[in-house]
Design a protein around this nucleic acid. Structure first.
Lengths: 237, 237
DNA sequence: GTACAAAACGAACGATCGTGCTTTATGGAG
DNA sequence: CTCCATAAAGCACGATCGTTCGTTTTGTAC
């Protein structure tokens, strides 16, 4: 039985290739957030990584596959930066607010050079067709649904008035973060985040049941998380 | 004195050139809203207009000049489609609401193929530098300021509670339309406009003085304007 | 008609795009 | 050390990019 060694070998070889692939995607995702998924170019990316176009290209087989991989990678980063931290909090209104706060903080610390990756790529691809557009729409939808679901859960806990239309609420909360991303990146003005957070808290306060207002009041006095832009290291070799 | 004839000649020649220039910009602005200002390509545009690349190019001298002209043209269209209609209404809350309604209607009837031109180009250019980005930022700012200014005017009329932070309000109203544009173009779902409008009316209702609630109540029952997508004519010659 | 300026064109430039095909390097298995 | 799959490189392709330049067409003034 040679299965084990084959698997091991494959693990090794895959590991070498996979490491390169991850390096490529790491760089690609940042280029794409600044220049767009279409502006992301294989030659430019190969230069940046000091490897050949064809060597890089072989990892994906087509530009569309590269774009799909980049979107998936961006999803992973979003999950790591926003979803995971928020999901350590208790379910209900607390988690809903955490989702929005983490989201705002991630925009503010410029995890991607060009603002929130998904807002940029959604607007870039919304008038096209094909698998890239479909993937972006699916991921956007699931995040919006997650906000909605958490609001509904808060209703079952009695934290949120059961008469509140949660999909309306999710739409508005989403729009506020969207607006912050737009305002911050266009005007380089961090007041974007105060404004968005004011709006968010106001929306939640409106729908919160009397007992829960304490929780929100406490949250609103907490300062926003650090939103310092990550220093771009200048490669000099 | 030959000035008159010279002027007349120049007027004529300029007119011929200017007509072409407007035709180019008319097409360019739609291509750009769908493919982006960078995706807008001179060769592609020349093909679409059945003219030569060089002939088209000569009107602008550089791609950046073309982009600037496209943004200006988009501004003119926005003014014609949104600002002018809204500015026929009386100043104050009525006009503020009209600005938002016209804006939503313009998104909904897809005046540009790729949704609101300025939202798309703002996100495309927000992480760049140069005159194109500057122009986009300036125009975005002035529209946001116009919303703010109208809200402040409503305060002087006593239609809006003077304690309302109008720049916060303008931010939120802007974000709601932004959200509608995103949702509608990504999911092809017209509920985007109901949701945005619900949010807008709620925001205004919160800040409205008691006497003005009637006005808003009447507005909220009015149906949204036609949001039928303009049929794309298929050229077949 | 002729003269003339503006508009439009045609052809080409070097650069870069995405994508194939062939060859070389790499590194663990035997 | 040899073998061999995989990773990476090299090279070239047709297409298209923005741009330049010299020529031709166009429309009016005289």
């Amino acid at each position: 039985m040679k299965a084990v060694s084959e698997i091991r070998k494959q693990q090794h070889n895959d590991a070498r290739g996979a490491k390169t692939r991850q390096d490529i995607l790491q760089a690609a995702v940042h280029v794409a957030s600044a220049e767009g998924l279409e502006g992301l170019t294989i030659g430019r990316l190969a230069d940046e990584l000091r490897m050949s176009k064809s060597g890089l290209f072989a990892h994906f087989g087509s530009k569309e596959e590269l774009q799909l991989a980049v979107v998936s990678k961006a999803r992973d980063i979003f999950v790591h930066e926003v979803v995971d931290p928020a999901f350590t909090r208790e379910r209900g209104l607390v988690r809903l607010l955490a989702m929005l706060d983490e989201w705002l903080a991630y925009v503010g610390r410029s995890v991607f050079r060009g603002g929130c990756f998904f807002m940029a790529s959604a607007i870039e691809f919304d008038s096209r067709t094909g698998p890239v557009r479909d993937l972006i729409a699916e991921l956007s939808r699931s995040w919006l649904d997650a906000l909605d679901a958490e609001a509904r859960f808060a209703q079952t806990l009695g934290q949120l008035d059961s008469r509140v239309d949660t999909s309306q609420l999710a739409f508005e909360l989403h729009a506020l973060v969207h607006g912050a991303n737009w305002y911050y990146n266009l005007f380089q003005d961090k007041r974007a985040f105060e404004r968005a957070r004011n709006g968010i808290l106001e929306r939640l306060r409106q729908g919160a049941t009397p007992g829960l207002l304490r929780v929100l009041a406490e949250k609103s006095s907490k300062r926003l998380k650090a939103t310092q832009r990550k220093p771009r290291r200048k490669e000099s070799r």
